[in-house]
Amino acid sequence: MSRLLRLSVNGQSVDVPAGASVAAAIAQATLHFRRSVRGTPRAPLCGMGVCFECRVRVDGVAHVRACMTPAVEGMQVYTDG
């Protein structure tokens, strides 16, 4: 098994293997990645950077695609769920 990285998702600690995406880290804590314009919960659809349903706040930067972002030790992630 590869090394584990620890991130914080909405204040909760989660561990993922090195090489995992931020999306994978979030999925350990919640499936609610963002709220749509009419307020319904959304989660990743395409897994490849096209649909933008996985947008979250990472280390203070908004609208980051979680599926395209490699998880890094100590990252602070906030969903809009």
């Binding site: 293997p17 995406s21 999306a23």
Partner: peptide
């Protein structure tokens, strides 16, 4: 794709 990147 999500699974390969560690989705549980």
């Amino acid at each position: 794709a999500l699974t390969k990147q560690g989705w549980p």
